[in-house]
Design a binder for these strands. Structure first.
Lengths: 103, 103
DNA sequence: TTCAAATATTAAATTTTTTTAATATTTAAT
DNA sequence: ATTAAATATTAAAAAAATTTAATATTTGAA
């Protein structure tokens, strides 16, 4: 019931959209939550714990990595993933841009 | 670099996901922004201003209405849409749940 | 070096989402 | 009553996302 008068240029909109899309999938949210819970964790632990296919896990991790939502680094045979909270923060801000001071 | 220890149950995750999906589309974001800008507006104005098909507009409006992101009321031949900021707020909180105090 | 474990990539199959295009509904005016 | 404007619904077509299943890459260990 309260106007926002958001200034939301095309670029920002694109970025917001891409970020949200990278998050808006049930499996990805589960993976993300799991990583969040564990701080830093490797792919094996992720897909064993969540009981999802290795390949699927890898593919979803890639989508989120490309969106910048998670970071990865290799240590020997293992690749460790962690959340890039700065970028998740940006997703939040994107949504926030639609918000009134109300509610 | 900062753990969150979010408590994020399955239900919340489902809800968050659905909300984000309802937002994560370029056209829907454009429509949403336009409604936000105008406070309350009818379908005609939306699709004429944004130069999108009437049918497409209607369908995207429906998706957002079902997700609760926007509200509608009819006044004669016109249907007026407005943003449900409370629900958008919930989308923001959903994303926020992944956030550390960092950043 | 060969082998196996961990992860990534790929292509095809499947599923879901989106668009197109046509038709239906609702309401106000004639 | 008919008609026209505003919006919604629907079904089929098209496009995009996801899964499956197989293969490739990387690395450490035997």
């Amino acid at each position: 019931m309260n106007k926002t008068k958001v200034v939301f240029n095309a670029e920002k909109l694109e970025t917001s959209c891409e970020l949200m899309r990278a998050l808006a999938h049930p499996l990805r949210l589960r993976i993300l939550e799991f990583i969040d819970r564990n701080g830093t964790i490797n792919v094996n632990k992720i897909y064993h714990s969540l009981k999802i296919e290795q390949s699927i896990t890898s593919q979803h991790l890639k989508i989120m990595r490309l969106a910048g939502v998670i970071d990865a680094y290799r240590e020997g045979k293992f690749v460790h993933y962690s959340i890039n909270y700065d970028v998740v923060k940006r997703a939040e801000i994107a949504v926030n841009n639609f918000l009134a001071k109300s509610a």
